[in-house]
């Protein structure tokens, strides 16, 4: 367990976060945008867990508890987000996020 370099954990976390951000910025499909957000959340969770192992003693648990709340919030986000996706695709019959730009004009 102790053979894992904490730097590698943070590196992985940063790479995953970047990957999630790229997905959010480049893809036009609403579902894939939502999934990119999930990847970013996961990367932050990993970062929390990685750093928490460097805290002394019982405090190391604090960093492990935060991802629990993140997961709960992600559940709420997915719940509302997907309901919104269903709602807006009813009107336009597409999941292309560029098509939902009425607010721009």
């Amino acid at each position: 367990m102790h053979s894992i370099d904490p730097f590698h954990v943070q590196l992985l976390s940063a790479l995953l976060f970047g990957l999630g951000l790229v997905v959010v910025l480049t893809r036009r499909n609403i579902f894939l945008v939502l999934m990119g957000v999930e990847v970013m959340l996961n990367a932050v969770n990993l970062s929390f867990v990685g750093f928490s192992q460097q805290l002394p003693g019982a405090q190391s648990l604090w960093g492990q508890l935060t991802p629990l709340f993140t997961i709960a919030i992600a559940a709420a986000e997915a719940c509302v987000g997907l309901a919104m996706v269903i709602c807006i695709t009813r009107g336009k019959d597409t999941v292309d996020s560029d098509q939902f730009a009425e607010m721009k004009e």
């Binding site: 367990m1 102790h2 894992i4 904490p6 730097f7 943070q10 590196l11 940063a14 790479l15 976060f17 970047g18 990957l19 951000l21 790229v22 910025l25 928490s52 192992q53 460097q54 805290l55 002394p56 003693g57 019982a58 190391s60 648990l61």
Partner: peptide, 25 residues
Amino acid sequence: PIALAAMVVKTLAFADASTIDPAAV
């Protein structure tokens, strides 16, 4: 995002060598 990731990596790479606390719960 690529720039962001690079910045994070740079920050981490030049940070003090941190280790996992063996007493971590």
